[in-house]
Design a protein around this nucleic acid. Structure first.
Lengths: 182, 182
DNA sequence: AGCTTATCTTGAATTGCATTCAAGATCATT
DNA sequence: AATGATCTTGAATGCAATTCAAGATAAGCT
């Protein structure tokens, strides 16, 4: 698709910027990271960022897509594990970005682009979960409900720092109860 | 405790400020409301607010306490209703402040005072819930787990705008499954 | 009643932020 | 080589929270 020296440099520079943004957002948090800091880490002037992203929220979405992409490719290895194992693994993965979970919810109200990303993300996870549950014989309706609840519980666990044993107990109970009461 | 003309005026002014802050925070959101706007609505200079509150986060906590206080006094009327009715009523109440749910989570990372308020709030709701469940014969352990999950689900429902029938189905399933699998 | 002190109130900074502007540099294509 | 598109940047702009120093006002004391 891209063959110019320009097109290549553009992609490289975008990757540098997004790598810097990801690192800072994860380490210090979105609010505490200024555009100037991202620019400095990426080795460009602050306003240069606005050539690549319309605003800070779009930069956030770019980093989110990057993180999710990486996460999904690793998830492929887990495809044949039982559901509770998968969920606990997912929680472990997301833990490092737990601050971003809150950030996304905070920005959803203000930025249409984040709102859209958020909606798609939930739909994707719901679909994944529903497919797994239906394969276990859960009805479509019950699977939908359970997927929604599971999503809420995952977000809750991430944004409320729950100790590991309690976390496991919750996930295990939820799935057992979900299938049992189907 | 307070008998001075000064002490009285202080309380009155605080109430004016908090009323203004509450209205603006609920209507426009915390981030979108500037200290200057609160000051204007309260009829004081922007910096006057800093005599009453150390910073914007402390003003937020003051408004939260006010809202929760009001909510709890209304909740007293619901004391003898079944648990699912209570939860759905609670959701209805909180709905108007759903934006503040996200705001609190966002500020928890940055402001110790909000962090503390948030922890206390969850503990209070957990205790309420646990007491109710134990009265129904649920073990302490299971009640604790279920209270946590319910808290997450309530927050999820509030911050993700779920249609009413689905909301009811979720609450009803959750409580039924919770008691059933105890 | 005066004097002193603690309690407020405020106009005018200060600082830090996201974002924009206008002007220049660099590359691709003809 | 000429032209236009693609970047890059230094210098604004505007808005936010927060602080500072100086002035008002009331309380408590003699």
């Amino acid at each position: 698709m891209a063959k110019n020296k320009r097109d290549i440099e553009r992609q490289v520079k975008q990757e540098e910027i997004e790598a810097a943004a990801t690192r800072l957002f994860v380490e210090r948090g979105y609010d505490a990271t200024s555009m100037a800091q991202v620019a400095e880490q990426a080795g460009v002037a602050p306003n240069t960022l606005y050539w690549y992203y319309k605003n800070k929220d779009e930069m956030l979405v770019a980093t989110l897509n990057r993180l999710v992409g990486k996460g999904l490719s690793e998830y492929a290895q887990m495809a044949d594990q039982p559901l509770d194992t998968q969920l606990l693994w997912l929680l472990g993965q997301f833990e490092q970005f737990s601050a971003l979970v809150t950030t996304v919810h905070a920005r959803v109200e203000h930025a249409a682009t984040v709102r859209e990303w958020h909606a798609n993300f939930h739909m994707m996870l719901d679909q994944l979960m529903i497919a797994r549950l239906q394969a276990q014989g859960v009805t479509a309706e019950q699977a939908g409900l359970l997927a929604t609840v599971t999503g809420f519980v995952v977000e809750g666990l991430l944004s409320h720092a729950t100790p590991q044993p309690q976390r496991e107990a919750i996930v295990q109970w939820l799935l057992r109860a979900g299938v049992q009461t189907a």
